[in-house]
């Protein structure tokens, strides 16, 4: 028997490119699908949420101002780093979701592929969402998509890694910055993703990850006057309504939780609508386009 002491990992939040503990000093127990203890995760407070928004706002100018090409390169780099840590994520996803190794590996592969897919969109989204508009006058009239700002994301509760990547990548690839509330019961893959993001040239503050009670963190984010959009994918149906009401105060863009398609009568699904989403399916461009503003310019033709 080895007499080596075990070196346990201290999971931390990811805010402004740093790894702080929760301001509140609290942690909570994270268990695997069978209820066995895995690790302690920080239980973030509303002040951590506030700090995360400040960091995201600070990073927005630089990230949205970077060239689309540059953003794409950085996101590809993230995918490369994910590939290098594949085994770690497979183990964490298998623990968190109770999958077999093979199924977890499939999820992780799908997540990395998803990340690459979204990275490719960085310099292509303008061609889809932008246009040259015919107008009655001697003007070029051009519409171009621009990032909306700071986006608060409530990550899916069931799919702790593939689901997370599927909601996070489309937000940041277009130049937004994000504050993500990780899945409450399975935050460890998200907190490990932060370590990947921190070593991939992604500027600090572009992605901020919080773990804790979803209801406790989502409420201040939804009401925060300096958040521009809210993705409610991981919120349950009841709180989603309240959050959307709070978000209306400063006219945030809101992406509602997905409507349960398969088994709408199921009680469990009503509680967590995102469980109904098949995250392995082709995501389409909806999530990319949800957090964009359109800027239209009129330019004299000079005839």
């Amino acid at each position: 028997m080895s007499d080596r002491l075990s070196v346990l990992k201290t999971y931390k939040l990811y805010v402004g490119g740093k790894f702080p503990r929760s301001e509140s000093g609290r942690v909570y127990e994270v268990t695997d699908a069978k209820g066995r203890w895995l690790a302690n995760a920080p239980l973030a407070s509303r002040k951590d949420a506030r700090d995360a928004v400040v960091a995201a706002r600070k990073a927005f100018g630089g990230w949205s101002g970077a060239t689309a090409y540059n953003r794409g390169q950085i996101l590809y780099r993230v995918a490369e780093m994910l590939e290098g840590r594949r085994e770690q994520f497979v183990a964490e996803v298998a623990d968190a979701e109770g999958h077999s190794k093979a199924k977890a590996a499939a999820q992780v592969d799908a997540a990395i592929d998803r990340w690459v897919w979204y990275a490719g969109w960085s310099d292509k989204v303008a061609q889809i969402a932008g246009s040259s508009n015919p107008v009655a006058g001697p003007y070029f009239n051009l519409s171009a998509p621009e990032p909306t700002g700071v986006v608060a994301v409530v990550a899916p509760q069931d799919s702790s890694f593939l689901g997370l990547v599927s909601v996070l990548a489309p937000v940041i690839v277009t130049g937004n910055t994000a504050v993500v509330v990780a899945a409450e019961r399975a935050p460890l893959p998200a907190l490990s993703l932060a370590e990947v993001l921190a070593t991939s040239d992604l500027p600090g503050g572009v992605v901020n990850l919080l773990s804790g009670r979803t209801t406790e963190l989502a409420a201040p984010l939804a009401a925060h006057q300096d958040v521009n959009a809210l993705d409610l994918t991981g919120a349950d149906a009841e709180s989603a309504k309240e959050l959307e009401t709070a978000a209306a105060d400063n006219l945030k863009r809101v992406l509602r939780p997905p409507v349960a398609r398969h088994r709408p009568s199921d009680e469990a699904l009503r509680a967590a609508p995102s469980d109904a989403v098949d995250w392995t399916a082709d995501p389409g461009t909806d999530r990319l386009l949800a957090f964009l503003e359109t800027k239209t310019v009129w330019h004299p033709m000079g005839v």
């Binding site: 928004v53 706002r57 201040p220 009401a223 925060h224 006057q225 300096d226 105060d249």
Partner: peptide, 14 residues
């Protein structure tokens, strides 16, 4: 001050 009076976090836009 705005946070204390409204309960919502304010931002530099205000």
């Amino acid at each position: 001050r705005q946070k204390l009076s409204t309960g919502r976090y304010s931002g530099p836009d205000y």
